[in-house]
Design a protein around this nucleic acid. Structure first.
Length: 483
DNA sequence: TTTTGAGTTGTTCGA
DNA sequence: GTCGAACAACTCAAA
């Protein structure tokens, strides 16, 4: 066997990260196309995130990797698992396998960029080809620019620019088959990684979620076929499954945004308000990465620094009650308990609990951001940071300071009959709808009949909302004057 | 350079 | 019950 021939048949390592799919995976598709053996690899990196991977998402990752390994097996190859520092792992694997190329899809969070950029330089040589591909976003972040060449800070013009910029690239199908190398390098065992929680607090996650790209594609199909009809209104109804529920799949890269985008484009109803509203949501994710790309410290620093002077309270006790869903405001508690139990929260309720933490309790948005990162299965460094900054008023295109959500009004508006509260706060289930969002105002007889003892079976409210609102407005006015 | 119009998701108050 | 205005400027993006 001569050298050239040998090189032609040398394996390609395809390094999977938060792109745990075979569909629309350019690195994998390009590797498969060469006809050379493919070694699919996942590295449990020492530090690939801003902070450790949240526990809820660790649960998801475990199942997602299981699902990906299955798919790859069916294609004729075998997913290799390794842990450690990416460079060391890759160097070793190149040596052990005789691979002459490494392919991966780019990531756009600051920690990922800080790892990948120098890595590409270090690894690339005459003997080793390192190629990166797009696919995590609809468009490369550097592609969307204002007329003066800068990044956008306001969503609407960003959306218009995305619309005017033409369609994102068509997704590429999963390879039909992967060539196996003569010998697979050794793999660690997923079970040894300890991604599943020791205590089985995630038992209920499986009721709501099925990680993996097969499930993601099914969800997309169901959604575009039926749920999307009426989406503009139904996505606001907390008691209904009116949203796509694709976010955790997107967060782990089990489905690509381009796949979703083009699925909505291909519909006969592609230009209805419902479908456009949904595509806008997809572009919000894009906008979050655009912001993060241009403001790498967005997860930890207020984009508008003057908000650091706001004098956030530490509020440890309040924070603790917020995380446990024991604030005494039913819609807030329902949301926080949904989050704990299912690793998710209805989008509308995320705003309500966020506003409550930041404005009613005056607690630093970063604490909320961290809690969400640890408990959400769809935790995403870009979206999470952007949205917390939005609600706190310090971010891009932020919520105006005087916009303080009223947890009672919001409950009545978006959980009209209290079905959402009844599901997640069962001790209030027997209350009539009239009182379910403010049991503290209910007549004693009504509470007694529903078996509710305030301060006993369900907490008294931890703040007086009207007073808390005034306090927040004063604090926000203050920094305006200070600045 | 200056100007202009606009900006995810709300609430309260008074007529 | 319903409706419009006030809430507070400020900054962004494009012309």
């Amino acid at each position: 066997m001569d050298d050239v021939h040998h090189r032609d048949k040398a394996p390609i390592i395809v390094w999977f990260r938060k792109d745990l799919r075979t569909d629309d995976h350019r690195a994998l598709a390009s590797a498969a196309e060469t006809g050379r053996p493919v070694i699919p690899l996942y590295i449990r990196e020492d530090q690939a995130e801003a902070g450790p991977l949240g526990e809820a998402q660790a649960w998801w990752l475990h199942h997602s990797l299981t699902s990906l390994a299955d798919r790859i097996e069916k294609l004729g190859s075998h997913l290799i698992l390794r842990s450690g520092d990416a460079e060391t792992v890759l160097q070793k694997l190149v040596q052990a396998s005789g691979a002459t190329a490494i392919f991966w899809n780019r990531r756009y969070d600051p920690v990922g960029i800080a790892i990948d950029k120098p890595l590409k330089e270090t690894l690339s040589s005459d003997a080793l080809e390192v190629v990166s591909f797009s696919g995590a976003l609809l468009h490369e972040p550097s592609r969307v620019k204002t007329k003066t060449g800068g990044p956008y800070k306001v969503y609407t013009p960003f959306w218009r620019a995305v619309e005017a910029g033409g369609e994102p690239p068509e997704p590429v199908d999963a390879p039909k088959v992967l060539e196996a190398p003569a010998r697979f390098p050794s793999s660690e065992a997923l079970a040894d990684w300890g991604l599943l929680p020791k205590r089985d607090w995630a038992a209920d996650f499986a009721e709501r979620w099925e990680p993996g790209e097969t499930s993601a594609r099914e969800k997309l199909e169901d959604f575009t076929e039926s749920t999307i009809d009426g989406y503009r209104a139904s996505r606001e109804r907390t008691w209904e499954a009116g949203t796509s529920r694709l976010s955790p799949h997107l967060a782990m890269g089990e489905i690509s945004p381009a796949r979703i985008w083009h699925a909505t484009r291909g519909l006969s109803k592609a230009d209805t308000a419902d479908v456009i509203t949904f595509r806008k949501e997809l572009v919000w994710r894009e906008f979050a990465y655009h912001l993060l790309f241009h403001n790498p410290d967005m997860p930890t620093e207020s984009l508008n620094r003057k908000y650091d002077k706001l004098g956030w309270t530490k509020g440890d006790k309040d924070f603790d009650r917020w995380t446990k869903g024991l604030t005494g405001f039913p819609i807030v508690d329902a949301g926080m308990r949904e989050l704990w139990r299912y690793g998710t929260m209805h989008n509308r309720v995320r705003m309500i609990v966020g506003s409550f933490l930041v404005k009613d309790l005056l607690i630093d948005w970063r604490r909320g951001e961290r809690w969400f990162r640890d408990t959400l299965v769809d935790a995403d460094p870009a979206s999470n940071a952007m949205n917390w900054q939005w609600v706190a008023g310090c971010g891009a295109d932020a919520s105006p300071f005087f916009r303080v959500f009223n947890p009672i009004t919001q409950g009545e508006k978006f959980d009209t009959d209290g079905l959402y509260v009844r599901e997640h706060v069962p001790e209030l289930a027997e209350l009539p709808s009239k009182w379910i969002h403010h049991p503290f105002d209910a007549p004693a007889a009504v509470l007694a009949k529903a078996g509710v003892k305030l301060g006993d079976t369900y907490p008294e409210p931890i703040v007086d909302h009207a007073k808390a609102r005034d306090r927040a407005l004063a604090a926000y006015r203050n920094i305006k004057d200070a600045a």
